[in-house]
Design a protein around this nucleic acid. Sequence first.
DNA 1: CTTGAACCTCCAGTCGCTAGAGGAATTAGG
DNA 2: CCTAATTCCTCTAGCGACTGGAGGTTCAAG
Lengths: 139, 139
Amino acid sequence: MSDMSIGNLSRQSGVKVPTIRYYESIGMLDTPPRSPGGQRRYSAGHLEQLRFIRHGRELGFGLDDLRALQDLTNRPHQSCEEADAIARKQLADVERRIAGLEAVRAELERMVERCSHGVVDKCRVIQTLSDHALCEGEH
Amino acid sequence: MSDMSIGNLSRQSGVKVPTIRYYESIGMLDTPPRSPGGQRRYSAGHLEQLRFIRHGRELGFGLDDLRALQDLTNRPHQSCEEADAIARKQLADVERRIAGLEAVRAELERMVERCSHGVVDKCRVIQTLSDHALCEGEH
DNA sequence: CTTGAACCTCCAGTCGCTAGAGGAATTAGG
DNA sequence: CCTAATTCCTCTAGCGACTGGAGGTTCAAG
């Protein structure tokens, strides 16, 4: 598993090659050793680190949060209060975004449902966008 | 209402001053006439245009889509099929994002609920991020 | 030893803004 | 009419989190 090339690491982790280099450049991923010719050589530890980042990104954590969480894993005997706080903040954020998107969905559904499939002049889609009052009045 | 300064237009529309200039620079908002001293002077038409954009942005439309929808308003006798298609695409996109976020919310809730509030080493938050299998196995 | 794939660095672009520097115009008060 | 405060101007650079390309080097298989 060790001594992976960057392409190999990419396949193992599901993270694209340029993204891996980007993570290294911003200090998210440990700098790997290089081959005599200068190519990156990764270990299983790097793979683990990258999967951690990827999973966190999938859950919508920002790279800053993930850096903080990563730092915590290096201090395993500390209280996990901080990790918990970050996760709760993320959960609250996700819930806020869902609520916003659901309001948007409702309005889009109204727009689309009421479209009479006629000409632009009378199109509900265009009308709704043009006249904010039309939508606010409907809440 | 006419002959608004950019600051005035900003207050009327709820769009920030630099954003208005940005919209002009990318051709989203019609170029306004200028005062003798070179300052922008907006009309009610610009306000309407800007509100259209703002409302569309709130609904998550990309600027490209809004440009297309704007163009349609200038051809009011055309069929609104295209507008309908853009709105449907947007609706589908929003629904997809909601579904994704709901999956994320569920996983975050599990993470947070199961956090034993002990030390990092045994923290469910960290564990879940570290080990993707833990989460996939739970579905 | 050759060949072709994969690697390297560096730079630019994406989207939709946002912020700051440094200077000119406008407007309200006296 | 003059001053001072506010607003306006352009230009440039930055955000987050990547993504892509050019032009050149190294690696691994046959």
